[in-house]
Structure formats: structure tokens, C-alpha cells
């Protein structure tokens, strides 16, 4: 009896030790692992997601990013939509990401982001893929690995904001981003007026909460179309439900973004609407969203050059640990 009790105690201790090792390892990886190291110069990490596709996440991401850029912030965009990477085209980014070798003969492959015409750093699988006609048929764990690989292998440099354009839904890619990016500042939810979007978005918000990802705010896109001829307001997608959804899910409602007749032209040309039509109501709305983001994260101003310089020269810690022994 005593022997059995001793064995049980020993097994239990072993399990506790293994659990402790696992937690310590996770903490170390989160603070000192490859992704943490790659993002060490990025001050705020924010992901944009929705429950369903077609709500305008990508357009919202690039215009939010561009509005922040116009305010003087250093902005990068990670296009995490592996199967439908639209960020480069929407920003007119045609070049490919180039590889950088930190050490001659070193086997680590690192990439430099592509810089858009308007000063945004862009990382997307579209910028490395063999061709538009070649389908990206990655599955399951391969997608997750690739997202993590991009996060860790890119020279992000110094950024005030890294905006992550997520694919629709709450699947593996979204969960991977939420769990892999250390110190994720939060999530911005994009919805549209339709009831179906509100329903799916509510699930997405619940999923974010389950994964301990703070939801910073909810934006309702394509809320209303203002007729350019007579000024009549047309609710093309039904009555607005964004505010109601935000109230129900207890998240801040950041406001509505109107439909814009200029938007299609801007996306096709690869110019953010906030750049091409800065005085349009839709551009004003995006700037208001940017202000809401700054407010929610209590960001007072862009990083100064001195701060950026300091962050840029912060060494990668190959051997530094918060604790030496356990």
C-alpha cells in the first residue's frame, strides 16, 4: 500500500514537473522565441478579423494602416489570408519580397517586407508565390506553419503598428495568429449591416474571448450608400445592426464606414481611398477609426526617431533569459 502510494506520489510529482517545464518553455518561447525576436521592434500588434468573408477586411486594413501612416506612424501589414492574399494588389505592391542573409553561409532564410508607394511595409504570400495562376493548396498544419514562419522570418524592423489582415472565420489561421503573436494588442472586428454578418461576427468575438485576445472595437462597414447625385441615403445591405451587435457582445462600437463609389476604382488602382480621396466621407470615417484605435491603445504619438533608433539596435537575445535556473 505504502509502495503504491509512493509510486503515485512520484508520478504526480513527475507530471507536475513536466507541466511546469511546459509552462516555462511556453513563456520563454513567447518572450524570447523566433516570433518574439522578429517582432521586438513592433510596438503595437493588432489583428483585423470578421466572422465571414466579403465584409471589407482587407480594404479596411489597408485604409486604416494608410490613415495611421498619414498621421506619422510607422505601419506594417501582414496579409495572413493565405488562400486569397489581396493586400499587395490593393496597395499597388507588385514587387516580390527579397531574401536577406544575416550571415554568410547561414541557413536561416529571412525576408525583407516590400515597401508600398505610401510607406507601408507589406508581407504577403502573394509576394513570394510563383505566380497568380498557381493555386495555393496548403492544408491544415502547413498553413499554420507558414503563418508562423512568415512572422518569424521577416525583418519587420521598427514599427508603431503591425496590422494583421486575417482570413474570414475563426479557423486555424485566425487561432494561430491569436496564439502566436506575443503581446497582441487586440482585435478589430469588421461587420456589415446584414443579420447574417452580425450573427457570424458574434461567434468570432466569442472565439477571440476564448483565446484571450482582447476585442478593441467593432466597425460596421458598407453601412450606407449616399447617392452622389441627390444625396439620398440608401441602406443597400439593410438596417444597421453594428451598434446593436456591439452592445450585445459588450465591445466598443467604433462607428460606421459608408459605401463609397470610389472604392472599386481605388482597389483596382492599388491606391488607398484615404490617399486618393482624402476628403471623401469614407476617408474621414477611416481616419476616425484610426483615432479610435489610438485611443483604445492609449497611443499618444508616433515613435520618435530616437526611440526607433534605440529599438532598431536592440540586440537579438540569443542567450539572454529572464531567469537563469529553474
Amino acid at each position: 500500500m505504502t509502495q503504491s502510494a509512493t509510486d503515485k506520489e512520484s508520478i504526480s510529482e513527475q507530471e507536475r514537473f513536466e507541466e511546469l517545464k511546459r509552462k516555462v518553455r511556453e513563456q520563454l518561447v513567447a518572450t524570447h522565441g523566433p516570433i518574439a525576436q522578429a517582432l521586438r521592434g513592433v510596438k503595437y500588434r493588432v489583428a483585423i478579423f470578421s466572422g465571414k468573408g466579403g465584409v471589407g477586411k482587407t480594404v479596411s486594413t489597408i485604409n486604416l494602416g494608410s490613415a495611421l501612416r498619414q498621421m506619422g506612424y510607422r505601419v506594417g501589414i501582414f496579409d495572413a489570408d493565405i488562400h486569397g492574399p489581396a493586400v499587395p494588389k490593393s496597395l499597388g505592391v507588385l514587387g516580390r519580397m527579397e531574401t536577406v542573409s544575416e550571415h554568410v553561409g547561414h541557413h536561416d532564410l529571412r525576408f525583407d517586407p516590400v515597401l508600398s508607394r505610401y510607406g507601408l511595409k507589406v508581407v504577403s504570400v502573394a509576394s513570394i508565390w510563383p505566380g497568380e495562376e498557381v493555386p495555393i493548396m496548403w492544408k491544415g498544419a502547413h498553413k499554420m506553419r507558414s503563418i508562423r514562419y512568415f512572422l518569424s522570418a521577416v525583418n519587420w524592423g521598427v514599427l508603431d503598428f503591425l496590422l494583421v489582415d486575417l482570413p474570414p472565420g475563426t479557423g486555424d489561421e485566425v487561432q494561430t495568429v491569436m496564439s502566436s503573436i506575443p503581446n497582441l494588442g487586440g482585435m478589430i472586428v469588421i461587420t456589415t449591416p446584414q443579420g447574417i454578418s452580425a450573427m457570424v461576427c458574434s461567434k468570432a468575438i466569442s472565439a477571440a474571448r476564448e483565446l484571450n485576445a482582447p476585442v478593441l472595437g467593432l466597425i460596421e462597414n458598407m453601412s450606407v450608400l449616399v447617392c452622389p447625385c441627390c444625396g439620398t441615403r440608401i441602406q443597400l445591405f439593410g438596417q444597421s445592426r453594428g451598434e446593436q451587435l456591439a452592445r450585445m457582445m459588450e465591445v466598443p462600437f467604433w462607428g460606421n464606414i459608408p459605401l463609397a463609389t470610389e472604392m472599386g476604382e481605388c482597389v483596382d488602382e492599388g491606391v488607398p481611398v484615404v490617399v486618393k480621396y482624402p476628403d471623401a466621407p469614407v476617408s474621414q470615417a477611416f481616419r476616425q477609426m484610426a483615432a479610435k484605435l489610438l485611443d483604445s491603445l492609449r497611443v499618444e504619438r508616433p515613435m520618435s526617431d530616437a526611440e526607433a533608433e534605440m529599438l532598431a539596435h536592440r540586440p537579438r537575445d540569443h542567450h539572454e533569459h529572464e531567469h537563469h535556473h529553474f
Partner: peptide, 26 residues
């Protein structure tokens, strides 16, 4: 990069290189 002529090689190398880096996490 960006060359469909070598898409097949790219795909093989991409799978193996991501495994090399992320198999442990996976």
C-alpha cells in the same frame, strides 16, 4: 520567387523549410 516555371520546386522546398523551422511547434 514569382516564377511559375519553378512552382514545383518551390512547393517542395517551402514545405520542407517550414517543417524545419516549425515542426517542433506543430
Amino acid at each position: 520567387a514569382g516564377n511559375p516555371a519553378y512552382a514545383a520546386s518551390f512547393q517542395v522546398l517551402q514545405i520542407v523549410s517550414t517543417l524545419e523551422v516549425e515542426a517542433d511547434y506543430q
